[in-house]
Design a protein around this nucleic acid. Sequence first.
DNA 1: CTGCCAACTTGCGATAGCGCAACGTCGCCC
DNA 2: GGGCGACGTTGCGCTATCGCAAGTTGGCAG
Lengths: 234, 234
Amino acid sequence: MSRPMPERLAVFDLFAGLDAAAMDDIAAAAVERRLDAGEMFFLQSERAERFFVLVDGRVRLTQVTPDGQQVVVRFIMPGEGFGLVAVLAGNVYPLSAEAMDPAVGYGWDGPTFKTLMARHPELATRSLSLVAQRVHEFQARNRELSTERVERRIARTLLRLTNQSGTRQSDGVRIDLPLTRQDVAEMTGTTVYTVSRVLAGWHEAGIIDAGRKRIVIRQPHSLVAIAEDLPPAR
Amino acid sequence: MSRPMPERLAVFDLFAGLDAAAMDDIAAAAVERRLDAGEMFFLQSERAERFFVLVDGRVRLTQVTPDGQQVVVRFIMPGEGFGLVAVLAGNVYPLSAEAMDPAVGYGWDGPTFKTLMARHPELATRSLSLVAQRVHEFQARNRELSTERVERRIARTLLRLTNQSGTRQSDGVRIDLPLTRQDVAEMTGTTVYTVSRVLAGWHEAGIIDAGRKRIVIRQPHSLVAIAEDLPPAR
DNA sequence: CTGCCAACTTGCGATAGCGCAACGTCGCCC
DNA sequence: GGGCGACGTTGCGCTATCGCAAGTTGGCAG
């Protein structure tokens, strides 16, 4: 298991503003994990031993309800962390983390990370604001789920994914995730059927270009108009 | 503005496990605020200066969507904190905090609290796990909102409120909050009409006893059965 | 190249939940 | 001890969304 490079870690949100000495210390405590596509970093309801920062690849976080329905909680791109909340709370993982492609992550276990936080107070502060940010995101999503129609929620979700992992190309912005209709449905709290119909409508209207596991936004402004419920902008 | 008693603070989640010296230090930095019913601790979208721990009274946290719809995020009972996440994230308050009755809170501003955390690492750890717990709650609520029917969500919400502020009485457990149908609707992402109809049904069935701003759970097990979607228990 | 399978689509009937409108009713304030 | 306003209820028509069933399609494995 190779030793992570402190320089590579320094770019991550979680470690922003830490000095080189601190980074060395933190990196020395990390464990690298390499997974193939389809393998799991951890499974829902296992004891939360270790959290990770993703260095390479993509990760899908999913949650299964007691009665077997699946929900996609979010996607993780390189530089982002996952599992932190569960480890800090000393709980069980509330969701599963699956590598969507060959992925590399660095991990720290709870006690180790707590020691690191005590040595580097900055780290505690950073962790707090990252977790606080998660709270905001979930709160926003809650509000959406309870007050907005499906179409609007899907629009918002696509825009969010665009920000997180969009690539500009000649005919619009492409979402760099192999997104199934099912995935979108699970992210927006609806069904495959409805997602399919909505996307078909937008395709019709020239707003997006959608294929198998592929979505390209051609007219982001139209999507924003739908998300914000503006007058159907000319 | 009277000085808070350290002994009173020590019972709060946020300060669990801190020694007397630390408590003195923390209490010395607190500011007491007394509000009448209907007054606000803070308003949504103000700069998040200060967070509070509630000592007495009850507080309602609400969020207003850009297009004017209101959502009840949660209720705060004595011993609980609110505003912490916003202050730590150095943001704007994402919601408003209204005193439902005459209320007393102790407050700390961000810089002060960060100093305190640096002096007492335990405090940082406690803060982290409290915030982490919030993440869990919101995540659970998200899952509910996207996978469950209204009836089930209402059942769950009542049970949750029962845990948070229920008083056992001869004919069942009473929820000690002046809960409007509107409030319940805003907590569960539905409408007054639907809440009214559902509660009427349960009243009919003898599961609850509901009046103006008053809900008593007579058969908690039946409500659990609904929440968990069990066979309509005999 | 071909066949197969997962992903996607679409018609259609079913229904949960919405929300207006109109009406009860409780309790508090003067 | 009225009367008023907030809260609660209910009938009713409406539609967004669901979800089955029965397809079509794209792309990859062999």
